[in-house]
């Protein structure tokens, strides 16, 4: 019941000498068995470092228009070139990448928070509350989220900032987590130890916080990464249509401006290629991380591959 296998699963199956190992060795051995987790985390860490260390190499002010000659190919002075507005595209990358990460992180966290709450309420209480939440989630999941977001974003186009963008996406990002958390809670609800806790007089919130939540932590971590991927994909999709923060150079907005100035047709590859590469690394990193975390959250997968 106590989840000792969350961080350092004792690899008794993997190696006969497992007991002789120290914790770092066990961690290393685990990482070797779960390379997806390591590679995914490394890709994401690399992207975060671009945002953290980038300002030491390039002045973020150059992400503003008119700070460089226009439409220059990559050179020593401007390693990623400049665009039609005269922005240094390296500075755009260094300021824009963290903004996209922030949208994804904020929206994913908010979505998971609301989704987990609704999932617990719906799964643990059951009854009419469950019916209402489930109908809401099931019905809204049949509609593509991007369309709802387009409707909302189009109505408030001029007022979108990075934080509003995150809020906007969070307003839909809770649906999937609430559904999966509900399913997990349903399987845990009638386990022996939960019944024991109930019989020994623990209140419902206590049972949820003390008994159910700890057992769902690895699962919630995987859901969190999933929610962040959803949020990032949604934000980039909206931004590619021009429905993002108009004055911030997020990855999606950079692609949008590149498209609206027909950069692909004019051969200005340095304008659109770096943000696309960054998005691809980001999405693949998140995908690998989800797969790695799934392996922790769902040990039955371990032997399958």
């Amino acid at each position: 019941m106590a989840n000792t296998s969350v961080n350092f699963p004792t690899p008794t199956l993997a190696s006969p000498h497992a007991r002789d190992r120290t914790a770092p060795q066990a961690l290393l051995a685990y990482c070797r068995r779960n390379p997806q987790l390591v590679i995914g985390a490394a890709m994401l860490l690399g992207l975060v470092l671009v945002g953290v260390l980038g300002p030491f190499f390039v002045d973020p002010k150059q992400a503003q228009p008119l700070s460089a000659p226009t439409a220059q190919p990559p050179s020593r002075q401007y390693p990623l070139g400049t665009d039609d507005y005269g922005r240094n595209l390296l500075a755009v990358m260094v300021t824009g990448l963290p903004l996209t990460l922030r949208i994804g992180f904020l929206a994913g966290a908010l979505g998971l928070l609301v989704g987990t709450f609704l999932g617990f309420v719906s799964g643990y209480l059951g009854g009419p509350v469950d019916a209402v939440i489930r109908t809401l989630v099931d019905t809204s999941l049949t509609v593509p989220g991007l369309l709802i977001l387009i409707t909302i974003a189009a109505s408030i186009k001029g007022f979108i900032s990075v934080n509003i963008m995150a809020l906007l996406i969070a307003s839909l990002a809770w649906r999937q987590p609430s559904r999966t958390v509900r399913a997990q809670v349903l399987t845990l609800r009638d386990r022996g130890y939960v019944q024991v806790a109930r019989r020994s007089g623990l209140s419902t919130p206590e049972i949820i916080v003390k008994e159910l939540l700890p057992n769902l932590l690895p699962f919630l971590a995987a859901s969190f990464v999933g929610a962040v991927s959803y949020a990032i994909l949604a934000s980039i999709g909206l931004e590619a249509l021009g429905l993002g923060p108009q004055n911030d150079p997020t990855l999606g907005m950079t692609v949008y401006w590149a498209i609206s100035f027909s950069a692909p047709l004019r051969g200005l590859w340095w304008w659109w290629l770096p943000p696309i590469v960054a998005v691809v690394i980001l999405i693949l990193g998140l995908l690998l991380l989800t797969m790695g975390l799934d392996e922790i959250a769902n040990p039955r997968l371990r032997r399958a591959a």
Partner: peptide
């Protein structure tokens, strides 16, 4: 890996390669 990439990102690359 391809399925993880948004459609439209792929299409920008394709336009550049096979039309420009």
């Amino acid at each position: 890996a391809l399925s993880a990439i948004p459609y439209y990102m792929l299409s920008i690359v394709l336009v550049y390669l096979f039309a420009v």
